[in-house]
Amino acid sequence: MTGNIWVLAEQWRGRISEITYEGLALGRELADQSGARLEAVLVGHNVRALADTLGRADSVLCLDHPLLAEPVASVYVDVLAPLLAERKLAAFLIPLTNVSLGIGSWLAGQLRVPAVNFCKDARFVDGRLQARCVLYGGKIEAEVAVCGEPAILGIWPGARPPEKGRSAQPPAIEQVTVFPDQTPSVRFRRYVEPARGDTDLRQQEILVGVGRGIRNKENMALAENLAGVLGGVVCGSRSVVDQGWLPLSRRVGKSGLTVKPKLYFALGISGAPEHVQGMRKSGCVIAVNTDPQAPIFDVAHYGIVGDVIELLPALTRAIRARKPPADDA
């Protein structure tokens, strides 16, 4: 039997993140495979009540302290590293999200243990832990073996369905006393909420998603025209928002919004995992990309290999021609 499997039960602003349940589902498989225990590690302040939803684990280690109220990587590492060094562990699954990013790398660096990022699957093969990872913006998959324990696995959203990681049964809870640094060098001050007033993408049935392939701000009008005839709204990838071609409120993905429209056009969007995370549950995805190997074609239901600038006027014209004039906004 190898060491136990840990899953970082990511909580943020009083809620357990969905990826925690995905991690628990994957962790459960690993623990069952190796005959080890699955333990969820819940870090924060006044989080005890959240532990009850983590029953897929055999037990929950609860690290509760006022200084752990916000997920600051260095502060979390400070309390997790000694615990990791003290207990026998095969793997620690940590969500690769905007909340927890950095914790895994730092732990691995400090403890000199293997780390594998971008994992979408993991299993033991002949007693050795192997992970399947998505690299190069989603274009390449790698099968990676770890050499040593514990291994820190950075988990991508979507590794397992979250339902498989939920359980109505409350787990055993172990309160772990921790002593975080009283004068941390990184201090949380406040949250800045997103500006209100713009369309809420999450309420839209049709979204026209635009990526860097649109090339310039002027071409955004082509996407606006398509959205206009469809009665939808334009949104975009991080690249487009970072260029200032769309406001922050229109960003879809890991650090933007998670949307679930009936129809999502992905125009000149490569399909990087951070974007896909925000739109993969759309009802119908139609992707247009010049690169036949673009990862977005693996998410889309329909794909067009071609130039979006060339296609958009034709597509808008064709849809306009089919719609009754009254609907043509």
Binding site: G138, I140, V144, A145, I319
Partner: peptide, 30 residues
């Protein structure tokens, strides 16, 4: 500390049904 055992292209067989033709042709199909 880690060993890459194998690498492969992730989108060799994309899930999407690829629509082919001229811009007007694929637009009609869409």
């Amino acid at each position: 500390l880690i060993q890459v055992l194998a690498m492969r292209k992730a989108t060799l067989a994309p899930r999407a049904e690829i629509l082919e033709g001229s811009p007007d042709g694929v637009s009609a199909r869409v």
